[in-house]
Design a protein around this nucleic acid. Sequence first.
DNA 1: TGAACATTTTGCGCGACGCGCAGCGTTTGT
DNA 2: ACAAACGCTGCGCGTCGCGCAAAATGTTCA
Lengths: 195, 195
Amino acid sequence: MGLRERKKQATRHALALTALRLAVERGYDRVLVEDIAAEVGVSPRTFNNYFGGKAEAICALAVHRSERIGDALRARPAGEPLWTALREAVLSELGAGGVPADLPDRVWIEGLRLVVTTPAMQGEYLRAQAATQEALAAAIRERLGDAVPDDLLPEVLGGAVAAACGVAMRRWLWSDPPVDLGDLLRRALLLLERS
Amino acid sequence: MGLRERKKQATRHALALTALRLAVERGYDRVLVEDIAAEVGVSPRTFNNYFGGKAEAICALAVHRSERIGDALRARPAGEPLWTALREAVLSELGAGGVPADLPDRVWIEGLRLVVTTPAMQGEYLRAQAATQEALAAAIRERLGDAVPDDLLPEVLGGAVAAACGVAMRRWLWSDPPVDLGDLLRRALLLLERS
DNA sequence: TGAACATTTTGCGCGACGCGCAGCGTTTGT
DNA sequence: ACAAACGCTGCGCGTCGCGCAAAATGTTCA
């Protein structure tokens, strides 16, 4: 990967990061695209080369995290039972909240709350869940290989797991006193397994 | 319900209807809010009194249909097993595609394809699925009453069923040769039941 | 009926947005 | 070192979402 690509990823990441942070600090509609671009040090026009809009930028980290769940599933040993692999894959990515490395926990949690709450971003956030579904479906299909009982199964299962994660996540975000996200995820997935 | 309310519902419905039709005829970004308003005979400003944006208007019919699934579940006999009730509720609303009365089948199907495809509307459409999840969760919670094994169950189950419906729907929309949506829905739900 | 009241529709205007376009500067590969 | 490829930027246009206040329309009650 050349310098060019590294720079691109860096600015993309910086944009997503400050977009989320500013949104948490000021509230969604008190942050302008102009502000985000200024803080990162690029022109407002450049912002739109990376993201189609404010909402997309703010949700980018969440989307990116979602997309990695498929890889996590692929990384599980092949002999492992499917449900075990699913559980461990999900836990490995979301277990502790899945906080990006260079972001304070508080900002991440408040950010997720904001994203889930604000109507203008719910749609974009749900696309992250849809991405999880797709990623899981693809990985499940690979794992099952030719032993698929029904060609709808990978997608249905992926969708169900993604939805369960969403439920656990939402419950966790507003739990008071705070509960362990890992426990919620395990419970939610167990409910699916024993439908 | 007075004349006032009836007129409001009528214009709202008319706006949603022509928004969808125009989007199908011309494509998403070749239809202006101005056009929709003009065709219905209201001012562009009034459009925004009913919908927050183009996408919301176009998806309104789909969202409305989603919201009725909860009621359909509530309408099932109380003694019925949960999975049976869920299946029948879903089939009663979506079985034949769930086409609104005053809309040609072709427009509805093409409209759904458009909505699912166009990035600017996917978010709004996914909110319809989320609405289904909520409606189902509420109805499931009522139905289970005090016999809930886990308080996450209604939401998880609602989410799983909603996701399964989404998968079946998407498969159906692009099936060639066309297959029966009812069959797809039954298969998808059966996969969940026998997780 | 008709007059006071409540609610909706409308025109106006503003700030923000998304993006096409074309020129400039930088990285890349040879 | 040079040319081609690529990203960044400023400019400008059409669209959007909405606050505001006045006009139009439905509602209620004497």
